[in-house]
Design a protein around this nucleic acid. Structure first.
Lengths: 227, 227
DNA sequence: CAGTGGTCTAGACCACGAT
DNA sequence: TCGTGGTCTAGACCACTGG
């Protein structure tokens, strides 16, 4: 048995025992180093693998913590973030980072001269777990800034702009947080995540908005029902 | 700019330039160490993040390589692995590792005294990208071993056992390969993956089989159409 | 202020792959 | 046999957190 595996298994055991529970802080890297008569490099090897497993996560220079329960998400059905979180016992929050207007870009797929760019961070139980970029037509959604943007954009589009989203297409892959996103979620730049590129269409099959979401990989679990 | 980020960006650039293309071998860790007047620890920091991004992967003691194109997969629709791979220009293979009979276990969800346990590894262009465990009732699928098990199990169930799968439920999460799976895919134990737990039901809503798949995270991309 | 994680140096030995 | 990645030691300095 390799040393880093022993350390990993030791922490697995702490978790199984419930010696440490969701949200708790793990022993410090230097404490583990001493306990296993090893070095910090080796201790971190074990911790990083536990993070990749989704069992623990680090807060910059604060320590390592046990991952709370994951949000169960159904990507094929339109659901309101707050509703979903509430059903599963989480306190949900949305923070609007910025709303800007920028020139359209070639691969946006949206037929418009310029685009709104909305950046938001969403939290579960005060833990920032998702960052998203939303792009949409400035003309179609004129004065978007006059609405409260920390709720459901789908609702605003439906009630304020008579735009009903009736089809969406998501491409989901596993990667790491881009550096600018990592900063906003207060994570390290190598943190694994699920990247979701979602395009939503109206009844005329025109692209309504373009959404790029980055979810912490240990904060979400997808459920897909087929056939 | 941190040193490991410089190394990472340098390799990003090689990829963008097409100086190295899908399947190519990267410079060795020691070559990069020398080029950047650094140490292997720091070089590996950069390489491991590129691996987490899904851009490169390592083969044990052979070197680091550029990740080929990902298989696009629609989890909500029943599709044959070979068909899907062929449509996207891959050569697909399935290797049966083992077929055993074991006592039923409490959380299998299958109503049966004993279960078949089928273990398979699937490859794209000769690269092992997925390991799966399939569990099903030994009585319902008597003499399963008499059929060729490297193709579609769904087809065998339909044509040989008059069992049509008409509903399925998948839970998808991001984690790392368990050690025993890592060995079968010839990967290191910390390799990130998508874990898919799939339950499939017949027209009577009875559980037909229980399937646990581990996909290399850089070999697959999910596409979900909604509403 | 002390303690923490983040980054980095300068080496080492090993098992395994390619040849 | 030699080069590769996998693992490990024994330190170091820094930025930031928390009391």
């Amino acid at each position: 048995m390799l040393l880093f595996q022993e350390i990993r298994n030791y922490i697995h055991q702490l978790l199984a025992d419930q010696s440490i529970a969701a949200g708790d802080k793990l022993p410090s890297e230097r404490a583990l180093q001493e306990q296993f008569s090893s070095t910090r490099i080796t201790v971190r090897e074990a911790l990083l693998r536990l993070e990749a497993e989704g069992l623990i996560y680090s807060q910059k220079r604060r320590g390592w913590f046990v991952t709370p329960a994951k949000l169960k998400w159904h990507p094929a059905t339109k659901v309101n973030f707050y509703e979903l979180a509430k059903q599963q016992g989480f306190k949900a929050d949305t923070l609007v980072i910025d709303l800007t207007i920028k020139a359209n870009f070639s691969d946006s797929g949206i037929n418009a001269p310029s685009l709104y760019h909305l950046q938001r961070v969403r939290s579960l139980d005060n833990r920032a777990v998702m960052y998203e970029d939303i792009y949409c037509d400035t003309q179609r959604f004129e004065q978007l800034e006059s609405h409260s943007l920390n709720g459901s954009i789908t609702d605003i589009m439906a009630t304020q702009y008579n735009t009903v989203v009736c089809k969406e297409n998501s491409v989901i892959s596993v990667t790491v947080l881009p550096d600018h996103v990592a900063i906003k979620l207060e994570k390290n730049s190598g943190t694994p995540c699920l990247k979701i590129i979602r395009k939503r269409y109206d009844e005329c099959h025109a692209l309504v908005d373009n959404n790029i979401e980055y979810w912490l990989h240990n904060a979400i679990e997808m459920i897909v029902d087929g056939q």
